[in-house]
């Protein structure tokens, strides 16, 4: 049995449409379009393009906020300092690790939850959906504190409830080691953002044509075969979009680490590094350079996803 997807529908243009010329009407529509979208476009430029440009500009200076007199142009010097520092590579590694673990686990869990939501009786579906969505509605800092309190050696309940698990005792200091800290941080992230992935996947599930499922059933395909050969191939676009969004999101992790370990035990992420240089040390130049590198990393991830996996964002939105 091969993978089964429906042939893409072709966009149909009216036969009478003249080719290549722009009519007055379409020109007018285009102008109206710009007038409607223009203000939003300007606001976008003001709130995204301008700060990005400023960060890039300032990353070329040695500039401390409390010492503006000694501001000095040093070209790419800040980038040299960062890229030759093991701390940068360690933070990048930690960030990549957390991103990988959380995204993989969330994808599997999120898919299972999406199936539950899709298959739930229509009478309880809204309740199930709301219940699954609650963690996503919780503010990240609040969720981070909740998980920190749960695992805290003094106030937490985890150490007394889970002593039956080997390695967990009343004296387990979760935030005292690298491995256990990363574990709790990942757990908090997974709990919080799995609903996001499952929602995106639910939308993808709804796009799988029922006729294909029925055809496969008639052919005698088992549940597992239908999942692998019919459901997943038809959802590829939705899965890739969910992965892309979550990966970009996970790569910027900050709140949980800030609350739980404050970067101790080598748990510092790239965002945290940028925060420490810019806000704590007031080294605007160095901090901007870290931010720019973070931005480049995120752009690279998006590029790899979109080109490498050939995601068609328009198709995932149902415009294809």
């Amino acid at each position: 049995m091969t993978q089964t997807t429906l042939p893409p529908t072709k966009k149909t243009a009216p036969v009478s449409a003249p080719e290549g010329t722009v009519t007055d009407r379409s020109r007018g529509e285009r102008r109206l379009g710009w007038m409607l979208a223009g203000p939003a476009f300007l606001v976008m430029l003001a709130v995204t393009a301008y700060p990005i440009a400023q960060a890039i500009y300032e990353s070329l200076f040695s500039y401390r906020l409390t010492d503006p007199a000694n501001r000095e142009f040093i070209g790419l010097g800040n980038y040299g300092v960062i890229l030759t520092d093991p701390l940068w590579w360690q933070s990048l590694g930690v960030t990549a690790l957390i991103t990988f673990i959380t995204v993989v686990v969330e994808l599997v869990l999120g898919f299972a939850l999406a199936m539950v939501m899709a298959k739930a009786l229509s009478s309880i579906r809204p309740v199930v959906r709301a219940a699954i969505l609650i963690p996503y509605a919780v503010i990240t800092v609040v969720s981070a504190y909740a998980w920190q309190f749960a695992f805290d050696i003094n106030s937490g309940f985890v150490n007394s409830w889970f002593t039956w698990i080997p390695g967990v005792s009343a004296d387990t200091d979760w935030f005292g080691d690298w491995g256990t800290s990363i574990f709790v941080i990942c757990l908090a992230e997974i709990w919080k953002t799995t609903p996001f992935i499952s929602l995106l996947l639910l939308a993808g599930l709804a796009q799988v044509p029922e006729v294909l499922q029925e055809a496969a059933k008639v052919d005698g395909a088992t549940w597992w075969q239908r999942l692998r050969k019919v459901t997943l191939p038809n959802m590829k676009a939705a899965i890739m979009v969910a992965l892309l969004f979550r990966t970009l999101d996970a790569f910027r992790i900050f709140d949980s680490i800030f609350v739980m370990t404050a970067g101790a035990n080598g748990t510092e992420s790239v965002s945290f590094l940028a925060y420490r240089q810019t806000i704590s040390r007031l080294e605007i130049g160095l901090g901007s350079a870290v931010s720019v590198l973070l931005f480049i990393s995120v752009v690279l991830i998006a590029f790899v996803f979109i080109k490498g996996f050939k995601i068609d964002l328009a198709q995932a939105r149902g415009e294809g």
């Binding site: 050696i153 003094n154 387990t172 200091d173 935030f175 005292g176 101790a264 035990n265």
Partner: peptide, 15 residues
């Protein structure tokens, strides 16, 4: 020292 000495703060010591 307590088992969580590497994360002990003032309130931890007090507790």
């Amino acid at each position: 020292v307590g088992p969580a000495f590497s994360t002990e703060d003032e309130s931890g010591s007090a507790a």
